[in-house]
């Protein structure tokens, strides 16, 4: 079947099935199972109302269990098995093999570097943009432009920045902006920025910072708007200068939002795959965990070690997960 027709059929089937399921199951509950009539009408209504939420929830819960909960448990299980030995239980052997690989530690080091730099820089830039565009006449246009990279794929962004980092041999015209500036400022020869170990990590991070700043800006800008005017006015009356107002009055008040932005970007950073995959593919000491995992899965065909490295990712996310869940539970009470 041609993909386009398959897509249309799938949409039709899925939509009909979904609506049909909800309609029919509710009907069944009300008309057949516990009809609100007869001698047990009251009891039946109560029973129907006990079951109904689960009718509404069932498809979603089923999909979530199958596509997120089960895989987490299964990945944990797989990380203790060895495929070459017929899925035999090998204990921590996969983990041991993983930690003995220098590539893994390189990925860990780089991931940590990303975790420190990207959320910090994105949040800082986002805050700066939110503040300077706050009362500008053309602030909305400025925000739109800085927000725009959010719509661009990580792969597209990688192409955009690869052109910036492009390097041509000495003597020919430089077509990458960075090298053109570098030569104009007196650099002796063009640099291949993405192959300079250690620093190339930062050239990759710039791409994600460029994308995530827009996100930080949108959230922080709304938070800045939400600050009560009186607090700022009071500070002005007390003779505070603009910088004091920003750092001592505004920033403390939006601290909870800054934390949210920071953690959200941290999660996005942790999972970074496309940028590294498209720009360096982990060469020149730029490996990260997600790409390491992909390598293990599709190049080395080693499910065990791949699962083990995925569990490392999960472990790194866990503190944020717990913190988020706690926040929500506090809110709901």
């Amino acid at each position: 079947m041609p993909p386009a027709i398959l897509a249309v059929v799938t949409i039709a089937v899925a939509v009909t099935a979904c609506i049909g399921y909800f309609y029919a199951s509710n009907l069944f509950l009300d008309k057949v199972l516990f009809p609100p009539r007869g001698p047990n009408a009251g009891r039946n209504i109560n029973r129907a109302n006990l079951i109904r939420p689960w009718l509404f929830l069932f498809p979603a819960l089923f999909a979530l269990s199958l596509y997120l909960v089960y895989p987490v448990i299964e990945t944990l299980r797989l990380s203790f098995l060895d495929r070459d030995q017929g899925n035999a239980f090998v204990g921590l052997a996969n983990y041991e093999q993983m930690v003995s690989e220098p590539k893994f530690w390189e990925a860990m080091r780089n991931n940590m570097l990303w975790l420190f730099v990207v959320p910090a820089a994105s949040t800082a830039f986002g805050l700066l943009v939110a503040q300077v565009t706050d009362r500008l006449g053309w602030g909305n246009i400025a925000k739109s432009i800085i927000f725009m990279p959010m719509a661009i794929s990580l792969v597209g962004a990688s192409v955009i920045w690869k052109l910036v980092y492009e390097s041509r041999p000495m003597g020919t015209e430089q077509i990458g902006v960075l090298n053109a500036i570098y030569i104009a400022l007196g650099g002796t020869e063009p640099q291949t920025w993405l192959t300079i170990p250690f620093w190339n990590n930062f050239f990759l991070m710039i791409v994600l910072i460029w994308i995530q700043t827009g996100f930080a800006m949108v959230i922080l800008s709304a938070a800045l708007r939400g600050i009560p005017e009186e607090t700022v006015e009071a500070a002005i009356v007390d003779g505070a200068n603009p910088f004091q107002i920003f750092f001592k009055i505004k920033v403390p008040q939006i601290m909870p939002t800054i934390v949210v932005v920071w953690t959200t970007i941290t999660i996005a950073t942790l999972k970074v795959f496309d940028i590294v995959f498209a720009m360096t593919n982990g060469q020149w000491n730029t490996q990260v965990l997600a790409n390491y995992m992909y390598d293990k899965l599709f190049r080395a065909f080693d499910w065990g070690v791949s699962s083990a490295s995925a569990m490392v990712l999960m472990l790194l996310v866990l503190p944020i997960l717990v913190w988020n869940v706690r926040q929500v539970r506090k809110e709901m009470q």
Binding site: Y67, L68, P71, L78, A290, M293, L313, M314, N324, V325
Partner: peptide, 15 residues
């Protein structure tokens, strides 16, 4: 909310 942050890398192999 917890599932919101689970890295989808974990889901790849089992799925």
């Amino acid at each position: 909310v917890g599932l919101l942050v689970v890295p989808l890398q974990l889901a790849l192999i089992p799925l």
